[in-house]
């Protein structure tokens, strides 16, 4: 119990020792302290999905998550999705299907889709739309995004 808290953040499989004020959000700490800037800030109130990360495999909004709460949890950000130089299938599909425009929503969408496919390897288009319910994309109209994710499950 002090104004600053020491904690070890398990981020993309690596431990990061940090000292942070408890009111700071995970988004802020990722971007400013860890300098993992792939997690984007779009609204700070849980309405755009650009800051989505996975906590123990589940998509959550890092703008509404206090970093101190993350002790002992496994955090995956967009930087941890790729293995080496290999893109994750979700990333590859989004690129191949021309789903990427300004890209600001992409980190969140990649993580949401990854979590969905781990739970449900061949989602229908409707299930993909449901899962994307937290992620605003202002450029694409979602059509190619949905198409790309559905293509990975081999379902129409």
């Amino acid at each position: 119990m002090s104004d600053k808290v020491s904690l070890s953040l398990c981020l993309n499989g690596a431990e990061h020792a940090l000292t942070v004020a408890p009111e700071r959000t995970l988004l802020d700490v990722l971007r400013e302290d860890v300098r993992a800037t792939g997690t984007r800030r779009g609204c700070d109130e849980g309405n755009c999905g650009a800051c989505t990360v996975l906590v123990d495999g589940v998509p959550v909004l890092s703008c509404l998550t206090l970093a101190v709460r993350m002790r002992g949890r496994a955090i995956t950000t967009v930087e941890g999705v790729q293995t080496g130089a290999e893109l994750h299938p979700v990333q590859r599909a989004l690129v191949r299907h021309g789903a990427v425009q300004c890209g600001f929503c992409m980190s969140g969408i990649v993580l949401t889709a990854k979590a969905l496919l781990e739970r449900n390897p061949s989602p229908t288009a409707e299930e993909v739309r449901q899962a994307l319910g937290s992620n605003v994309c202002r450029c694409s109209g979602y059509a190619r995004v949905v198409e790309a994710i559905v293509s990975l499950g081999g379902r129409p």
Binding site: T39, R40, L87, Q91, G98, F104
Partner: peptide, 21 residues
């Protein structure tokens, strides 16, 4: 041809740098 955008990779991997980064 529908060639993929060359910046798409850096955008899906989070490496793309926007001003606030």
């Amino acid at each position: 041809a529908s060639v993929p955008k060359p910046d798409a990779r850096e955008k899906v991997t989070g490496r793309a740098v926007y001003t606030d980064d």
